[in-house]
């Protein structure tokens, strides 16, 4: 059996998905990146290697470390996460017109019409309402992140929380908590505030039509999903593999790429036997002081980036 693998290395999580030729997910993996993308990629590959018995015919990478992952794994396609998410959503829910995606550090909206992306938005300067902030609030309230969303559904009277800025939101939550409001009402209020902020800050008046797909790590949060449905007055679909959609999209793109070029550059799972590491130095050629990063495979430098000029481009 042939399989295509997608690897999405984000700031918070590293996800791997393997699809078959019918673009159905046969295996998936969700790992925390823990600030060490190379380690996470190796660990992920090692784990998934034992779980599947198909031949990997193509590999794609995406996410903020897509370039790094691409070099290590030998990717057939290296694509940005907006395109990957859009491709995944339209593969899983044909006819989707709006994708709401909230991940660890960023949130985006993708508007599709007739299967083609026609507009997108991404949070620019503010991370209010992303997974990291919810994580932080859950741990402040000593509630596991898995329970967090469910609690919002038990609220009777959600309180009003300022959602524009995570610093304001936190101080507002603390004020309400100290007045005696119960935790469920505060969490529900926070969910509503985050949804409103998302719609104002990320969606910014874009035309939101159904079917709507909600994906990314935060889609696990039932409270946010319900808040979206109430605010939009439309049904919101959370796909089965909501947390690895970037990886799925990347796998679909890999399949397309391999079909076109007729072979794969995948280095094989043995990649994990190699010793990969990165080193960096500050170039002293000019006051730009570029931070140049070397990616080593054993003793050999296999890729290098980070400089503004071509001085270090050749490996």
């Amino acid at each position: 059996m042939k399989g295509y693998m997608g690897v999405d290395v984000g700031s918070v999580s590293t996800n791997i998905a393997i699809i078959n030729e019918e673009q159905e997910v046969i295996e998936k993996l969700y790992l925390r990146t823990e600030g060490q993308p190379i380690k996470a990629i190796k660990k992920g590959l090692m784990e998934i290697k034992d779980r599947v018995d198909c031949e990997i015919s193509g590999v794609g990478t995406t996410g903020s470390a897509r370039q790094l992952a691409g070099v290590i794994i030998g990717a057939d396609t290296v694509k940005n996460e907006i395109t990957a998410h859009a491709v995944a959503a339209s593969t899983v829910v044909p006819g989707v017109q709006t994708v709401l995606e909230i991940g660890g550090q960023d949130s985006k909206i993708i508007v599709l019409r007739d299967g083609v992306v026609v507009d997108f938005g991404m949070n620019t300067v503010c991370a209010a309402g992303t997974g990291s902030f919810l994580d932080q609030q859950a741990s402040r309230l000593n509630i596991s992140i898995e329970e967090f969303g469910g609690l919002a559904l038990q609220a009777n009277a959600p309180v009003r929380i300022a959602g524009r800025c995570s610093v304001f939101a936190e101080s507002d939550m603390i004020h309400k908590q100290q007045l005696g409001h119960n935790v469920e009402d505060i969490i529900a209020g926070l969910s509503e505030a985050l949804v409103k902020n998302y719609l104002n800050n990320v969606a910014q008046g874009k035309e939101i039509l159904g079917p709507i797909v909600f994906q990314g790590g935060v889609a696990a949060n039932e409270g946010i999903k319900v808040a979206f449905e109430e605010e939009l007055g439309l049904e919101v679909v959370v796909p089965e593999y909501y947390d690895v959609m970037g990886a799925i999209g990347s796998a679909v793109l890999a399949q397309e790429a391999v079909n076109e070029k007729g072979r794969t550059d995948f280095k094989g799972f043995n990649t994990t036997d190699f010793n990969y590491h990165a080193s960096s130095f500050e170039c002293e050629g000019c006051p730009n002081s570029c931070e140049v990063i070397n990616i080593h495979q054993g003793d050999e430098v296999i890729a290098r980036w980070g400089s503004k000029c071509p001085k270090w481009e050749a490996v």
């Binding site: 903020s64 694509k79 940005n80 996460e81 907006i82 395109t83 992306v117 997108f120 991404m122």
Partner: peptide, 11 residues
Amino acid sequence: YVTRLEAFIDL
């Protein structure tokens, strides 16, 4: 920044 530009070109 590059992510947005790439996605825009894809679009």
